[in-house]
């Protein structure tokens, strides 16, 4: 009962919601960069929210099913085929032993998720199956997927198929887009250390995503917002923290960040927007907008209500052709 990895793609890793409560031994959280797309993949398959799925960066994964089950692909737009037949994203599909599942390269967005009914059955390390390659923890021996890996899962012969209506699919930025993604940030940490002109520059300019970006953090390029004070004691770093090193170029820290660091931070981007940021590619533009904790709380509460209130479409065997 498993999937065989034929082609792993550029960076495909097993992830659950992340590793929590382990910062005291220096372990970071890991987990899906785009928690919304990850959550939909599991929900469409009736999985628990923390079920283990694969995160792909830039796509390019080829799996072969070794047993009967159901899969679902969400996130960045890409071509999904099962035995050469094009299949819909954000929708569950039945697969049988020997089926070839191919995910092409991502066209809009960057991170995609492929989940399986019941989740991949991986032994958790420190309470989580999330792979953090830098720490060699989680997934299969702490590594990204490689050709010939076996990904164990349970056999599922019957499952009510579901899909997310297209009107609810997130809009991922086109790769040639000139549009600018808004990142909402709660000013915090060393915010008062930045002089008012640096604060203004930070909130009134666009920044470009550079190619020196990974699961640890997104390095941005734009007007210098360097902080006069560079010398500080290392302190805990949270998800979304915007670190400003001496060169004045912001780094937005993501899931695989180091747990402590000693650069000044102007504030932290909310998780809903780090998910959007992680879907961008080098060259895409962002700008920052300051919000307070009350606004952040409202945004998060509404997002959760919306996720829970959004009903999935049920796919009856008769209506298959419309959704396959």
């Amino acid at each position: 009962m498993s999937f065989n990895v034929v082609q792993p793609g550029l960076l495909s890793t097993l992830q659950d919601l992340g590793r929590f409560g382990q910062h005291s031994v220096g372990l970071t959280t890991g987990g899906p960069l785009d928690t919304e797309a990850f959550a939909w993949a599991n929900r469409i398959l009736h999985n628990p929210a923390n079920a283990c799925a694969i995160e792909l960066s830039f796509g390019g994964l080829h799996l072969r099913a070794q047993s009967q089950t159901y899969i679902c692909v969400t996130g960045a737009t890409l071509d999904l085929t099962i035995n050469g037949q094009t299949k819909q994203l954000w929708c569950s599909h039945k697969v049988a032993e020997g089926d070839d599942i191919k995910l092409g390269y991502s066209q809009q967005g960057c991170r995609s998720y492929i989940a399986v009914a019941g989740g991949f059955t991986i032994t958790p390390s420190f309470g989580s199956t999330s792979t953090v390659v830098r720490e060699k923890i989680g997934g299969l021996n702490g590594l990204k997927l490689a050709a010939n890996d076996q990904l164990p899962c349970a056999q599922t012969t019957e499952l009510k198929r579901q899909a997310l209506a297209m009107e609810h699919w997130p809009n991922y930025t086109k790769n040639d887009a000139t549009s600018c993604t808004k990142l909402r940030l709660v000013p915090g940490y060393q915010y008062p250390w930045f002089d008012p002109s640096a604060q203004l520059r930070f909130f009134h300019n666009q920044y470009q995503v550079t190619d020196r970006s990974d699961r640890m953090g997104m390095r941005l390029n734009g007007p210098d917002v360097s902080c006069a004070t560079q010398s500080m004691l290392s302190e805990g770093i949270c998800l979304g923290a915007v670190q400003i090193p001496a060169d004045g170029q912001p780094i937005v820290l993501l899931n695989d960040r180091q747990t402590i660091g000693g650069y000044p931070k102007i504030g932290s981007v909310i998780a809903i927007d780090t998910a959007k940021l992680a879907q961008l590619r080098p060259g895409n533009l962002v700008h920052f907008e300051a919000i307070d904790l009350y606004q952040a709380h409202t945004i998060n509460t509404l997002a959760k209500l919306k996720f829970n209130a959004t009903e999935l479409l049920e796919i009856s065997p008769r209506s298959r052709s419309h959704h396959d």
Binding site: F20, S24, T29, L233, E235, G236, C238, H297
Partner: peptide
Amino acid sequence: LVDLVSSYASLLVIYNSLQHDH
């Protein structure tokens, strides 16, 4: 409480903001 990071002169306290507000 989601996680804690103790360092030289600071303590980072990460909490579940949908369970209790700030």
